[in-house]
Design a protein around this nucleic acid. Structure first.
Length: 583
RNA sequence: GCGCCCGUAGCUCAGUGGAUAGAGCAGCGGAUUUCUAAUCCGCUGGUCGUUGGUUCGAUCCCAACCGGGCGCGCCA
């Protein structure tokens, strides 16, 4: 990839010019902010000039004099206060274009140090429907897994299902008193949710009902045969429906080890925390307090109240002996390290749980465990009014409803545009475009942005959307259908038109776009790239006729189409979005 | 009260210590006998919440304030 190649040449130039690089200073090359100046630029001279107290412009010139980039650039220049600008040569672009068409890596290098990465995402609850809140975790997690794998990391995906919460007290009681078995057979989750909601609402101001539910929960936890059988059935029924949802979405997991999987590990874990002095007993509960090892304002176990610091402990065992969310998460870390040799664990979980993960990360550190834990947080889902999208009373927008609606709209649109489509072919197109539209609506946003739920925006088939990108792909395929023969890499290429060059340049940046995703765990950077690529392709498509051209021009344009086709398909695939040959 | 996240065009959102802050949608005006019109080109539209500070340079970093969202000992 040009960016890292140029960065390396920059380093070589420093050596050759005998420029001392200060500790912790890394020269960088970035895409040109204004393409009039070139394709890539380096602001290093200005930053370094500050460090070394020298004139940045003169420093830039010195670097430029020592740069050896003839094989990559047709021009380098020093501009303004010390910008170093690079213009990639056409032979270098043409050569990279061949790479994209011929290599199964699309010209994208793998990482130099592959890691064992566990990605924890989606995490729906048993007996509760997946709602829009699960969209981000599921899509972001799936995309990050695809990207990390493509870049050469060893990835294990694990769906940490909520199969052991306190909600089971209510579900068990509801099952025994309110369950409609016919309804359960028809739509299990719907029926389970129905009874859960009724009990939950009733328990709100009914102390004795809460006690009944709690008793059911305790029986379950103590291994009562009847309650355990009901619980097992709830989990089984839920998993069947979840599998259907994931199948439709094209999301897969290597494992789906729910919270219950770690039940036996929780007691010993708490004992260990106590034995090591990390946790202590407080008011009957086992909690982790601050150990004073970091500044109070950075300590997740402290919170300020007026002028004094108050404890914000992490509770790992309740005073009644029950375990909590943090306990399970800690036990899960042990398992992932022991069984999967995890170097890193990424949690794709909403921003509101930030404090929880700060606790988990701090406790893990204090246990002396060497693992990189990353909370890949995302903003909340809000209604059109900007308020939290709550699931309690009123209509919940389920994940399935969103997907079904999207598929319906896509089907209608596709049938209208191409009346010859029907049956399975139409269904397949509708599913790909409908799911793709919903996924892309999520993944094209910065994950930290609070998301305002809006059907129209999500399902719009125009603008910066999956259908637009898929359409660009379809156009590339249409050309090859019309060509009537398989694409064969021509012997020579010659880029001449601006639109050709612009497209080739954008194609070459696929490598950078993919690698950049993992810097901040943000798929939206790839979405932006793909949109720009589709844009370049459409401009090229308008400006440069492919099949009517001849000779080397035609060869070059066909190669551009082939490369675009491959990159769009692969790029969308990394977002979890499929492509279709027609639409 | 304390903490975290956010505040950018009418709406929905990108973006970065650097060169003139960008898209999509909406609005307006053009193109097109198609390699499929889910397309392209152009125009209109901004005090980057406010005020200070650091810097050669701040929308970006720091501080305070305003506004919105979320969280804060036995739910997950």
């Amino acid at each position: 990839m040009f960016r890292s190649q140029l960065t390396q040449r920059l380093l070589d130039a420093f050596t050759s010019a005998q420029i001392e690089i200060p500790e912790g200073f890394a020269p960088s090359v970035v895409l040109a902010s204004d393409t009039r100046f070139g394709d890539y630029q380096s602001n290093t001279a200005m930053a370094l000039g500050k460090h070394l107290r020298t004139n940045p412009r003169a420093l830039a010139q010195t670097i430029a004099d020592h740069l050896k980039v003839d094989d990559l650039c047709e021009k380098i220049s020093v501009d303004g206060p010390g910008f170093l600008n690079f213009t990639i040569s056409k032979p270098a672009l043409q050569s990279h274009l061949c790479d994209i068409c011929q290599s199964d890596r699309f010209g994208v290098p793998t990482v130099t140090e592959p890691r064992n990465i566990v990605i924890d995402f989606s995490a729906p609850n048993v007996a509760k429907p997946m709602h829009v809140g699960h969209i981000r975790s599921t899509f972001i997690g799936d995309s990050l897994a695809r990207v990390a794998r493509f870049l050469g990391h060893h990835v294990t995906t694990d769906n940490h299902i909520g199969d052991w919460g306190t909600q089971f007290g209510m579900i068990l009681h509801g099952w025994k008193t309110l369950l409609d078995h016919d309804a359960l057979a028809k739509d299990p989750i719907h029926e389970l949710v129905r009874v859960y909601k009724i009990i939950n609402a009733a328990a709100k101001d009914d102390e004795s009902l809460r006690e009944v539910c709690k008793a059911e929960l305790v029986k379950l936890q103590q291994g009562d045969a009847e309650n355990h059988a009901i619980w097992t059935e709830c989990v089984r029924l839920t998993m069947i429906q979840l599998d259907k949802v994931y199948d439709t979405l094209g999301v897969t997991f290597d494992y789906a080890l729910g919270e219950s999987y770690y039940n036996d590990a929780l007691g010993p874990l708490v004992d260990d925390l106590l034995a090591k002095g990390i946790a202590s007993v407080s008011e009957g509960a086992v909690v982790v307090f601050s150990d004073g090892s970091v500044k109070p304002e950075e300590d997740p176990f402290l919170t300020r109240d007026k002028d004094e610091w108050k404890a914000a402990p992490c509770i790992v065992r309740k005073s009644d002996g029950g375990f909590l969310y943090p306990t399970t998460d800690l036990a899960t870390i042990d398992y992932r390290i022991n069984e999967w040799k995890a170097d890193e664990i990424w949690y794709v979980v909403g921003q509101p749980q930030q404090l929880h993960f700060r606790h988990i990360i701090a406790v893990t550190q204090r246990r002396g465990i060497d693992v990189k834990l990353v909370h890949v947080a995302f903003g909340s889902i809000q209604g059109e009014d900007g308020k939290m999208f709550k699931t309690r009373s009123g209509e919940t927008v389920g994940l399935l409803e969103v997907i079904d609606e999207a598929i319906d709209r896509a089907r209608t649109a596709a049938a209208e545009k191409d009346p010859s489509l029907s049956g399975d072919a139409l269904e397949e197109i509708a599913r790909i475009i409908g799911c793709g539209a919903v996924k892309y609506a999520e993944l094209s946003q910065n994950r930290m942005t609070d998301y305002k739920f809006a059907w129209d925006r999500m399902l719009s088939l125009q603008g910066n959307t999956a259908p637009y990108l898929i359409n660009a792909y379809v156009r590339t395929r249409a050309i090859f259908r019309k060509l009537g023969e398989d694409f064969a890499m021509p012997a020579a290429l010659q880029i001449t038109e601006d639109a050709e060059r612009g497209l080739a340049m954008k194609l070459a940046q696929f490598a950078e776009a993919t690698h950049d995703i993992l810097i901040d765990h943000r798929p939206n950077t790839l979405a932006t790239y793909l949109f720009e690529l589709a844009d370049c392709y459409h401009s090229f498509y308008e400006a440069c006729h492919v099949l009517n051209s001849t000779g080397i021009t035609r060869d070059t344009r066909l190669t551009l189409c082939q490369a675009t086709s491959r990159v769009l398909k692969q790029g969308l695939n990394l977002l979890g979005i499929q492509t279709t040959e027609r639409m």
